[in-house]
């Protein structure tokens, strides 16, 4: 595979759709990502501040619904797989490179701040929305869930609505 030559997006989408279908057929649930972040946070907080998690409503509610180690969850294993799969793919296509990517119009510092703030907003939003682009929007669309499709519309609608205000982060014009 040539460097920087990406797969045709429709073909990639078709493969992703088949993968999602197979996932639903095998496991009865779709793909996801933010759930693994949640498991990570809960695991970290409960091992560092066990007293705190033992008396805080949110963590108690979580442990009531999820027995056992939060890291021994389906999404955590799936996300570990994503890391391996993406690494292998980038290795094969010669795209592995440690770099901070940003638009030429902004500095590295700005990009770091934006990535941190954007991540925090996405992390917060994914908890409110009960899933992110994968778990709620994409998987929700596949099973025709009203909630999933509304979240999807809100994500893309919101992004378009806010895009104008943050254009300087991405385009120089």
């Amino acid at each position: 595979m040539k460097k920087d030559k990406f797969m045709n997006p429709y073909l990639a989408g078709f493969f992703l759709g088949l993968l999602l279908l197979v996932t639903i057929f095998i496991t009865g649930r779709g793909l996801g990502a933010s759930g693994a972040f949640k498991s990570g946070v809960i695991s970290a907080v409960s091992s560092v501040f066990p007293v705190h998690t033992g008396e805080t409503h949110y963590y108690l509610e979580y442990f009531e619904e999820h027995k056992g180690n939060p890291l021994k969850s389906w999404l955590v294993f799936e996300v570990i797989g994503v890391i391996i799969g993406a690494f292998m793919s980038a290795l094969m296509s010669d795209r592995l490179k440690l770099k901070l990517e940003h638009s030429p119009g902004i500095t590295s510092k700005t990009r770091i701040a934006a990535a941190l703030i954007g991540g925090a907003l996405f992390g917060l939003g994914s908890q409110l929305g009960r899933g992110c682009t994968s778990g709620s929007a994409l998987s929700g669309m596949a099973v025709l869930s009203t909630g999933g499709i509304i979240t999807m519309l809100a994500i893309f609608g919101g992004a378009y609505a806010f895009a104008f205000f943050f254009r300087k982060l991405w385009i120089t014009k």
Partner: peptide
């Protein structure tokens, strides 16, 4: 996916804003 209309909308808007600021989604 369950439908909680208000958190689906609010969560989606937060994510949309996170997307254009941060440039990624979790996956």
């Amino acid at each position: 996916n369950p439908t909680y209309i208000w958190s689906a909308l609010a969560g989606g808007l937060f994510m949309g804003m996170g997307f254009v600021i941060g440039g990624f989604c979790p996956g």
